[in-house]
Amino acid sequence: MNGLVAIAAAIAVFTGVGAGIGIGIATSKAAEGVSRQPEAAGQIRGITLLGAVLAEATAIYGLFIAILLYLKLG
């Protein structure tokens, strides 16, 4: 039973893959935007941060589920 819970927690943490890809895309587009229009750097920084944070939230939910599995069932 313990082993199965560990595997379930590991699968839940896989949500990090999506967040990683999302933050990568957001940052690459931000770098492109700044190199094209350096004067808009301030605004772009705020938007990038917001996008990265929202993308990261999915990974955090995965982590949260994993921790709950580990604490309540493991």
Binding site: A57, A59, I60, Y61, F64
Partner: peptide, 10 residues
């Protein structure tokens, strides 16, 4: 709530 908690705990 979950963002702050998850990041710091991780």
């Amino acid at each position: 709530c979950l963002r702050l908690f998850g990041n710091i705990l991780a």
